[in-house]
């Protein structure tokens, strides 16, 4: 798994943001959002910085980080693929779509490929039940998904990344 580098500038930026949040009540959540944005993930080293600033124990912070799926402990890939496993999508067969994507990329849910290009997540309802089943790639929603359509979209990005695409 790729390790993140905590540069001095990024650390100072985070500390500055946390100190702003500290003025208001409930500073942990906004601090975590900033940390996720600045570093792309919130590993223990980053949690230690937040712990120092907010005087909240690392264990408590880690509990919150691992509770919300928005936060991650390890860096996510360049492309984040989410397959909705909400009720509507699930009954319409989104599990098969998820399995297809995991098989193609040779990773499990929540993991990132070795080349750090793709992360796969099982998401909750994305609010597009009318289009069920849906999956998302980098925030864009693809509706009425089938195993074939997901495979095709995925192939398109892989080709693009590996430079074998034809324009």
């Amino acid at each position: 798994m790729g390790k993140i580098v905590i540069t001095k500038e990024k650390e100072l930026l985070l500390r500055k943001k946390i100190r702003e949040h500290k003025q208001k009540s409930g500073p942990l959540m906004p601090s975590l959002h900033d940390a996720q944005e600045i570093f792309g993930c919130i590993p223990l080293e980053v949690q230690k910085i937040i712990s120092e600033e907010l005087k909240i124990s690392v264990s408590k912070i880690n509990g919150v980080v691992t509770f919300y799926s928005r936060f991650s402990l390890e860096p996510k890939g360049k492309h984040v693929i989410g397959v909705c496993l909400g009720t509507a999508c699930y009954v319409k067969g989104s599990q098969a779509v998820l399995d297809e994507i995991c098989n193609t990329l040779q990773i499990k849910v929540g993991e990132t490929t070795k080349d750090e290009l793709f992360s796969v997540e099982a998401t909750r309802c994305v609010g597009a039940c009318g289009l069920a089943p849906v999956f998302t790639i980098d925030g864009k929603v693809y509706g009425h998904a089938t195993v074939q359509s997901a495979a095709k979209e995925l192939r398109r990005i892989i080709d693009w990344e590996t430079g074998t695409h034809e324009n």
Binding site: I56, S57, S59, K60, N62, G63, T66, F67, Y68
Partner: peptide, 14 residues
């Protein structure tokens, strides 16, 4: 938390 104020143990995951 109560006895040490350190909060070493907590819930992980959900």
């Amino acid at each position: 938390n109560y006895y040490t104020g350190l909060g070493i143990l907590d819930f992980n995951q959900r």
